[in-house]
Amino acid sequence: TFVEFNGKKVEYPTPEAAEKAAKKLAKKLNLKVTKKNGNYKLE
């Protein structure tokens, strides 16, 4: 499962880990999380 932000793509071993990381990053970077095709994107 990938988390995409600032043009970077980071892969996580589980969807749970990706979701957790996405939410944490979104909060830190003041972005919102969108889920697309099972992957997460911060914008």
Rank of each mutant, 00 (worst) to 15 (best):
A18H: 00
T1G: 07
V33N: 01
K28V: 10
G7V: 01
K9P: 04
L25Q: 04
F5V: 07
K8C: 14
K32Y: 08
V10A: 07
A21S: 06
N39D: 11
K9G: 04
K35P: 05
E4C: 11
K35Q: 12
N30S: 07
K32W: 06
A18T: 02
Y12S: 00
N6L: 14
Y12A: 00
L42Q: 01
A17T: 07
V33Q: 02
K32V: 14
K20G: 07
K35C: 12
A22Q: 01
E19L: 14
G7F: 05
L31Y: 04
L25H: 02
Y12C: 04
E4T: 07
P15N: 09
A26I: 03
A21F: 08
N37H: 08
K23H: 14
A18D: 00
L25W: 09
K28G: 06
G7E: 05
E19I: 07
N37R: 06
L42A: 02
E19F: 15
K20Q: 13
Y12F: 13
E16I: 09
Y12L: 02
K35L: 15
N6E: 09
A18N: 00
K28N: 07
G7W: 04
T14Q: 03
E19N: 07
K28P: 01
K28S: 09
K27V: 10
G7N: 09
K23R: 14
L31A: 06
E11S: 13
L31G: 02
N39A: 11
A26S: 06
V33G: 00
E11W: 15
K20Y: 12
A18V: 00
A17W: 06
L29Q: 05
E16P: 03
K28A: 13
A21C: 08
K32P: 03
V10G: 03
K24D: 14
N6R: 11
L31N: 01
G38T: 03
K35V: 15
F2N: 04
K23I: 14
E16M: 12
Y40Q: 02
N39L: 10
A26G: 07
Y40K: 02
V33D: 00
T34S: 10
A26F: 01
N37P: 03
E16W: 11
V10N: 06
E19P: 00
A21N: 04
P13E: 09
K28T: 10
A22S: 04
K8V: 13
P13C: 08
L31R: 03
L29M: 09
K35Y: 15
K9D: 03
E16R: 09
V3H: 00
A17R: 07
T1P: 08
K24F: 15
K20T: 11
K35M: 15
L42D: 01
L42V: 12
N30R: 09
A17V: 07
F5W: 13
L31Q: 04
T1K: 07
K24Q: 14
N39H: 15
A22K: 00
T14Y: 05
K9Y: 12
K20M: 11
T14M: 03
K41S: 13
P15E: 12
K32R: 12
K8I: 14
K35H: 10
T34L: 10
F5Q: 01
K35R: 11
N30M: 08
A22N: 00
K27I: 11
P13Q: 09
A21W: 07
G7H: 06
K41V: 15
G38R: 05
L25T: 04
V33I: 15
A22P: 00
L42H: 02
T34M: 09
E4S: 07
F2K: 03
E11K: 14
V33H: 01
K32C: 10
A21R: 03
V33T: 04
L25I: 11
V3A: 00
K41Y: 15
P13W: 06
K8S: 09
K41F: 15
K28E: 13
A18W: 01
T14K: 03
E16Q: 13
E43L: 09
K8W: 15
F2M: 08
K9M: 12
T1M: 07
E43W: 11
L42I: 10
L31H: 03
L42G: 01
A22F: 02
N6Y: 13
A26Q: 03
K8Q: 12
Y12H: 04
K41W: 15
E4G: 02
G38Y: 03
L25S: 01
Y12E: 00
E43C: 10
N37F: 07
N37V: 04
K32M: 09
K35A: 08
G38V: 02
F2G: 03
A17Y: 06
V3Y: 03
K41M: 15
V10R: 13
K24T: 13
V3I: 08
A18S: 01
V3N: 01
P13N: 09
V10I: 14
L25E: 03
A22V: 09
L29D: 03
F2W: 14
K23S: 10
L29G: 04
Y12V: 00
G38W: 02
F5G: 01
N39C: 12
K32A: 08
Y40P: 02
K32T: 13
T34Q: 07
E16T: 08
L31E: 01
E16S: 08
K8T: 11
A18F: 01
A18K: 00
K20F: 12
A26E: 03
G38P: 02
E11A: 12
E16L: 10
K35I: 15
L42N: 01
Y40D: 02
A18Y: 00
P15G: 07
L25F: 07
G7K: 06
K20L: 13
P15K: 10
T14A: 03
L25P: 01
P13D: 11
V10H: 10
K35G: 05
E11P: 11
E19D: 07
K36M: 14
N39F: 09
K23E: 11
P13M: 08
E4I: 12
F5L: 08
G38A: 04
K41N: 08
V33F: 06
Y40F: 13
V10C: 10
Y12G: 00
E4N: 04
K41A: 10
K27P: 02
T34W: 06
E43H: 10
F5A: 03
T1Q: 05
E16Y: 10
P13K: 11
F5H: 06
A17Q: 11
A21Y: 08
A22L: 03
V3C: 04
E11F: 15
K9E: 06
E19H: 11
L29Y: 15
L25R: 02
E4D: 05
T1Y: 15
E19Y: 15
G7Y: 05
E4Q: 06
K28Q: 12
A22R: 01
V3P: 00
N30P: 02
V3W: 01
A17K: 09
A18C: 04
K28H: 11
L31V: 06
K28M: 13
K28Y: 11
E4K: 03
P15W: 09
V10M: 12
L42Y: 01
G7Q: 05
T14G: 05
K9R: 14
Y40I: 10
T14W: 03
L42S: 01
G7D: 07
E43K: 05
Y12Q: 00
A17G: 06
K9I: 14
V3M: 04
N30A: 07
L42R: 00
N6K: 09
L25V: 06
K9H: 08
G38L: 04
T1R: 08
G7I: 01
N37S: 07
F5I: 07
A18I: 01
K20C: 09
K32H: 09
A26H: 02
N30T: 05
K41P: 02
E16C: 09
K24P: 00
E43Y: 13
E43I: 13
L25G: 01
V10S: 06
P15A: 13
G38N: 08
V33K: 02
K24M: 14
K36I: 15
K23Y: 15
T1L: 06
N39P: 01
A26P: 00
A26D: 01
E19G: 07
E4P: 00
K24C: 11
V33L: 12
K8A: 09
L29S: 03
N39G: 15
E4H: 06
Y40W: 12
T1V: 14
E11Q: 13
F2R: 04
K35N: 10
F5N: 01
E11R: 14
N39M: 12
K27S: 10
K24R: 14
V33C: 09
K20P: 00
K35T: 10
G38E: 06
A18P: 00
T14L: 02
G7M: 05
K36C: 10
A22Y: 02
P13V: 07
K28D: 11
E19T: 05
V3R: 00
K41H: 15
E16A: 11
K9N: 09
N39I: 14
N39W: 09
V3F: 04
N39K: 05
Y40G: 02
F5E: 01
K41T: 14
T1A: 12
L25A: 05
E19W: 15
K9S: 11
A21D: 04
A17I: 09
E43R: 05
L31K: 03
P13I: 06
L29I: 03
Y40V: 04
P15V: 10
G38C: 07
F5D: 00
T34C: 07
T14H: 05
A26V: 03
L31D: 01
K27D: 11
K32L: 10
K36Q: 15
A17D: 10
G38Q: 05
Y12M: 03
L42E: 02
